[in-house]
Design a protein around this nucleic acid. Structure first.
Lengths: 139, 139
DNA sequence: ATTTGTGCAAATCGTTTGCATCTGA
DNA sequence: TCAGATGCAAACGATTTGCACAAAT
């Protein structure tokens, strides 16, 4: 919960085999310094710019994808219009508020997914995504 | 389960407020004639061409979206790369085989979603998507 | 006659890639 | 030194849109 210092971030990156470059450290700082977050590439890019770091959007995308491949982030697909990157890699689910495009974590223990059907034939289970879509209460 | 005839399709479209045009009838025929299906716009477009109907891809997209808005179809998002349109609008869930991009229905009664968390504040539940991701069994 | 749909091509939007240039180990 | 990273711009693929023409009520 407390902001990881530069040293910790460096180690985190080394641990997953990524070089702790200036931009990766800075982006990791933005991502992991303040508890769980859901960011899009655009958002992180803007945020980086605001804190004085100049990174190209392409590098933000590359970095987010590298972090995801390394298991530091998890991608969340909602409506296909954009990809969210979730710093919470534990087992959990999501509310998705369609109008404002907001994503809200649902801890795993709040949904009881008993009795999943077995994976077909030669397939193994790679993950379970649960998205609860929300609309405004009216109508 | 039996192929709906032209008359039934016409009524179906009228019922949801869509004019039964030639292309809409033809696409509806492809979609609803053979039980539950998951199609992408590209697939349906190709299929239409194969059966001798010339429709533009834009019209296929427009039609699929109109059908979805009208409740005749349901969109399924898997990896953000493409949108599937599901002719099964009943409550149910999906397996998604990542390697071959195949979608498999899971009947609602095969997953027990007891105890959903209540929607936050002024939001109402608009839908629940469950996607079980599959990989090849090896590794 | 009037409204609604269609086709086409161009536009959009998020995301990825190629390549020349930097940078960390 | 030198593999690996970065930046930029161009490429991309799925989807949407603008507009002139055609078809349905």
């Amino acid at each position: 919960m407390t902001a990881p210092d530069e040293r910790k971030l460096t180690d985190m990156l080394r641990d997953v085999g990524l070089r702790p470059t200036r931009q990766r450290l800075a982006l990791a700082g933005l991502l992991f310094a303040h508890g769980d977050r859901h960011v899009t590439a655009e958002e992180l890019h803007r945020e980086a710019a605001e804190t004085g770091l100049s990174v190209s959007l392409a590098t933000v995308y590359n970095t987010l994808n590298q972090f995801s491949d390394a298991g530091l982030l998890r991608q969340v697909i909602t409506d296909g219009a954009r990809t969210f990157y979730d710093t919470n890699t534990r087992d959990h689910y999501h509310f998705y508020a369609e109008e404002d495009g907001r994503l809200i974590d649902i801890p795993a223990d709040q949904i009881d997914l008993g009795r999943l059907p077995p994976p077909p034939d030669g397939a193994r289970l790679a993950g379970v995504d649960v998205i609860i879509r929300l609309r405004k209460a009216g109508a």
